[in-house]
Structures are given as structure tokens and as C-alpha cells.
Amino acid sequence: MNSFNLTYLKRHPLSFLLRLLVYLSTAATVAVVFFLIGYILWQGVPNLTMPGLFAWEYTSENQSMMPAIINTVIITVMTLAIAVPIGVFAAVYLVEYAKRGNKLVKLIRITAETLSGIPSIVYGLFGFIVFVITLGWSYTLLSGVITLSIMILPLIMRTTEEALMAVPDSYREGSFGLGAGRLRTVFRVIIPSAMPGILAGIILAIGRIVGESAALIFTAGTNPVVAQGPFYSASTLSVHMYALMTEGLHTEQAYAVAVVLLVLVILINALSGFLAKKLTSNQEG
């Protein structure tokens, strides 16, 4: 490495300039990350008024986000309950059962890629057409859950596929060699050793569900109370924040919700990163 100083500028002006641009761009990116997080925390934490914003009952006076937090948990659990088994099973089929060069497998991969590229507003509109208009459910928790399940399916499929492919073939051979069938090998050997990778994918999916708003506004609606059942309208934290912002009267509360969302995202990212690291160290070990 050359030293980055004035003599370097005189001898290699272009290289100096390029390196300057590289440093500046990286500094700008890092500055954006820290400024964004710092600004939201600095403005938002003082607005986390303890009893009011976290009251169990939502009223137009306290604008409590507690019901929205509970709804977020309900929607996350229900969405995962649908999408995780389908996504993991689909990945098992693609990695363990499908033959190479199969036309169907190609089609599955193309459609999964298409699904992951579709913007969330299009998912929201699809859910709106199917559940709210065609089935006449109106805005309900279940419409939102099914819409989100389709949305995170490609993410679960891709991360699980990667995790399954990272399992060494010797595990499979060892299991078959001991007389286990294919099914037993999948559930007793392959999935357990791919678990950290699968979990890291699930946690990423939780992050997407928690942060999603466009797909939920026209499916689960913006009702800021705890859902009584799957056929009641209920807003998650992100949708609640959207409602607070569009009303324009509750900036302080919106800041507070932003803090909660940001902290959740930081925790989710840290956990997912930790699991991914565990996966790589497992393979090395």
C-alpha cells in the first residue's frame, strides 16, 4: 500500500483522486447510517412518555402504541406459521428431491425470483382485490397475514436453500449408510445442521414483517386497537406510524414509534448476524 499524502498526490494524481473518492463515499455512507439512527433516537427517546404511549388501551388522547405492538406480534407469529413450513418444505424439495435440470424446478426458481422483486404496494393491492373485494372480508388481520406470507415466502425459500446446500454431502451419505430413509435424513440430519441458517432467514423475515406498511394498509387496515380475532381490522407498528404521520397532528408520537421500530430492527439484524456467524463457524469446526 502506498502512503496517502502530498507526495502521492504529485506522483499519482489520478490514484490520489480515486482513493479520495473511495474514502469520501464510504464516509458519507457511514455518516448517513449514524446520523439517521442518532437523529431518530435523539428526537424520539424524549417522546417515549412512559405510561401514556404504552397504555394497554388506545384512546385518541394517549395515541398508545401498545395495541399496535401486540398486533405486530400476532401478525408476525401468524405469518411465520404459514410461510415458514411452506418455504422450508419448498427449499427441501429444491435441494434434496428435485433432479438437476428439471423444467418444474426452473419454473419454481423463476417464480420465486419474480415474487421477491414485486413491490410491497403491489402485494397490498393484490390482497385488497382478493380478500377485501372478491371474498368480501373487508379489512381483516387474516387478509394481511396471507398477503405477508406470500411476500416473505421467497426470502425463506432462498435462505433455507442456501443453508441446506451448505450441509456437507458426507452428512447425507453417513445417514443413508446407517440405513436411514430420505425423509429421516432430511428431518433428523439435514434440517438440524442447517438450523442456524434457516433461523437467520426467519429473523430477516421478521424484520420485513415488522417494517412492512404498504402491503398492510389496504389488507389489515389502520385500526389502532388490539385485534379480537383473525377477522378484525388491526394495524401493526409501521402502519400505526403511517397513520400518525398522515394525520399530521402527532409528530411526537410518530418519533416515539420510529424509535421502537429502529430498536427492533437493530436487535433483529444483530441476532441474524450472530446466527449467520454461528453457521459459518459450525462448518469450519
Binding site: S213, V265, N269
Partner: peptide, 12 residues
């Protein structure tokens, strides 16, 4: 830090 940028919800 850059991964975090990808995880921040668009509403935020």
C-alpha cells in the same frame, strides 16, 4: 452498519 441500512423500514 450497511446491513442495518437495508433493514430500516421504509416508513422510518
Amino acid at each position: 452498519a450497511i446491513d442495518l441500512l437495508a433493514g430500516i423500514p421504509s416508513i422510518v
